[in-house]
Every structure is written in structure tokens, then in C-alpha cells.
Amino acid sequence: MTQVLLVDDDPDFLEITRLVLIHHGIEVLTASNRAQAMSILQQEHPAVILLDVMMTYTLDGMDMVTQIRRLPDFRDTPILVISSLRPSQVAEMLPASALQQIQGWLVKPVRLEELAQKVRALCKE
């Protein structure tokens, strides 16, 4: 079964996404903060990482992207950002290279079918 890691500080969003992806035959690991996520990545090797970029007051999710990319096993793992805000709404906080490090950006509320399709497509890559 394909496994993905979902990182979000909103427990409802974790639950919603988990339900949808499980329905589509995808196993979901969840983490509500950066420390939990990094700890999971020490032991598991998810095929896709889904990440909320604005978990606290700042775009610390983007810092996490950089941190994940430093791990040798996850240099090429697709990362899908899911956020309440569009990239243009946080443009001044996004480093120039940030968008090159991720493979997609979905805006909440996410269309569930689109989410499932996108994750499936990234899993196949």
C-alpha cells in the first residue's frame, strides 16, 4: 500500500485528508508539527509528503521543506503544499527558490477528488 506523510497542525484537516486518502487506498501517516514529522521521516519512507506551510505565525512549513530536502532519502520525494493561502498571498515571505523545491500547491478548502488525484499522480512519479 502506498504511504504518504501528512503534516498539519489542524487535527480536523488531518482527519479529513486521512479519510479521503484511505478511501483511495493510500496509507496516511500524520504529524501535527515539525518535530513529529521529522521523527516519522527517520523511520518511514513515505512516497509523498503533504505539508501545511503556515502552521504557526510564520511560514515554518517552508523551512521544513528545506529541512526535508537536506535528508539524503528525501531529496526527490514529491512534496505537496496544502495551505489556506495562495502563494501570491504570502509572496513576500516565500524565498525565491522555495517553489522550485515543491511539486504542487493546493489551497484549502481542497476539492477532495482533486486532492486524491494529485496525490495518486505524485505517488506514481
Binding site: 479529513i16 503556515m54 489556506s84 484549502k108 478548502p109 481542497v110 477532495l112
Partner: peptide
């Protein structure tokens, strides 16, 4: 905006 959208997004998604 982020904090107001989060519960709305959760409600809509549910």
C-alpha cells in the same frame, strides 16, 4: 485570513 479560513475550510471539507 489564514486563521479565519482554517475553520471554514474544515467545515466545507467535512
Amino acid at each position: 485570513a489564514h486563521e479565519l479560513r482554517a475553520p471554514v475550510a474544515a467545515i466545507q471539507s467535512y
